[in-house]
């Protein structure tokens, strides 16, 4: 479900905010190098859930193949930037 505070700020801020809210983690835990799967213990359903939230907030479609490639927070930010600009 989209959060109002995900609609403002830079792409980096908005991506981090989505991850913080979905995973209930503090800002300092969401570093650019963090891998969702390996560092943050995110399972495949949670990845799908985060991807759906990204799709909704940024109004894009993310294919399954793309979703598997984006592992770290920075990769997600770069991917979103390439899709929306």
């Amino acid at each position: 479900m989209s959060q109002d505070n995900s609609q403002t700020g830079s792409i980096e801020e908005r991506v981090k905010k989505i991850i913080m809210e979905k995973l209930e983690v503090a800002e300092e835990e969401v570093t650019s190098e963090s891998s969702l799967r390996d560092d943050m213990g995110v399972d495949s359903l949670e990845i799908t859930d985060i991807v759906m939230e990204l799709e909704e907030v940024f109004d894009i479609e993310i294919s399954t193949e793309d979703a598997e490639k984006i592992q770290t927070v920075q990769e997600i930010i770069d991917y979103i930037q390439s899709r929306v600009t």
Binding site: L45, T48, D49, M52, E55, E56, E61
Partner: peptide, 13 residues
């Protein structure tokens, strides 16, 4: 409102 892609993976479980 958004089609199949908006249905949560947690819906069924």
């Amino acid at each position: 409102s958004g089609g199949a892609r908006r249905v949560s993976p947690y819906f069924v479980p």
